[in-house]
């Protein structure tokens, strides 16, 4: 299981990268943390002729406060996300998600940008950025653009990135006061890809849910926002939250796809159970925080 031959290029500026893309097109492949790409290359399911290492590109690292948002460089590793005081303060959901991702030896190398570009349907981060209403900042031959996370994921391993484009950062709005967030997943074994998972955000004003974003992963062909389910929560009093309408809406609005171990019916069932449990957990944590 050895990768097919390739030329490795460590680029130091965007212009150099664009030249390579111009010359090689789809045969050139960007490597970030490599935690999903390298196994695919080892099995020769991915066989780029040029491997572009972007670790040296300027502006892809770091986690910074931009005022009303946190800008996370695409090359920020999971461990950086976990250890960031800024994120802990302003977007705790990201730190909570990292604890569920794979294992420590993967978290040390895997990057947020690589993860989002790979778009595994059972991965946590694509759901997290949608729940947080983040924007994916992209740079390519045509310049820079920014896409809402909810529009970025197009299908299994398919994202809104044109040839030559890369993710440069993810911009996550700071959590407003009164926000509750939580992430849960059902896995066969610790660190496995989720059989069903949810990353939920509830914005609470005066004890009532003013806005809700429920992102599900490991259920459909991509991480998805359950908008109808979220709508059933808006206006409900948090302390007396009834999850049943959300579960019902969720069951009808999502199209589960099977994985190797779970059929669509199981996925639909599991995401319903998860929704109830995660909402209950969020409500109970909020009670404790205020109690």
């Amino acid at each position: 299981m050895k990768a097919a031959p390739f030329d490795y290029v460590r680029v130091s500026c965007f212009e150099e990268m664009q030249e390579i893309f111009a010359a090689h097109g789809d045969d050139a492949q960007v490597i970030a943390g490599g935690q999903s790409l390298i196994p695919a290359m080892a099995m020769r399911m991915a066989r780029p002729s040029v491997l572009l290492d972007i670790a040296g590109l300027p502006g892809l690292s770091g986690i910074e406060d931009t005022g009303d948002a946190i800008r996370i460089g695409a090359m920020a590793r999971y461990v950086d996300l976990r250890e960031s005081a800024l994120l802990a303060t302003h977007v705790p959901l990201i730190r909570d998600a990292v604890a569920l991702i794979a294992h420590e030896a993967i978290r040390s190398r895997g990057t947020i940008g690589g993860n989002l570009a790979h778009a595994d349907p059972a991965s946590e981060m694509p759901a997290v950025v949608q729940a947080l209403d983040a924007r994916i900042d992209i740079r390519g031959p045509e310049g820079q653009r920014s896409v809402p996370a909810a529009e970025f994921f197009l299908g299994t391993y398919a994202v809104d990135l044109a040839p030559g484009e890369i993710i440069v950062s993810v911009t996550v709005p700071k959590a407003p006061a009164g926000r509750l967030s939580g992430i849960q997943e059902f896995v066969r074994r610790s660190g496995d890809y989720a059989s069903a998972g949810g990353a939920f955000v509830l914005d609470v004003e005066n004890g009532r849910i003013a806005a809700a974003r429920l992102a599900c992963f490991g259920v459909c062909d991509r991480a998805v926002l359950a908008e109808q389910a979220a709508a059933t929560l808006v206006g409900q009093e948090l302390a007396a939250l009834d999850p049943e309408p959300a579960v019902k809406a969720l069951a009808s609005e999502i199209e589960p796809t099977a994985d190797l171990h779970n059929g669509p019916a199981t996925k639909r069932h599991l995401i319903g159970v998860l929704t109830k449990r995660l909402l209950a957990d969020m409500v109970s944590r909020s009670g404790k925080a205020h109690g």
Binding site: A3, Q35, I38, A42, V79, A105, I106, S108
Partner: peptide
């Protein structure tokens, strides 16, 4: 396993454990 799952190739990279099979030497 050569696909980053089994952990037998774990080494320290810049002070943190990582999978030796999920990194090209040139990196």
């Amino acid at each position: 396993c050569e696909h980053g799952v089994c952990g037998a190739c774990t080494v320290y990279v810049d002070g943190r454990i990582a999978r030796g099979c999920l990194m090209f030497a040139i990196q």
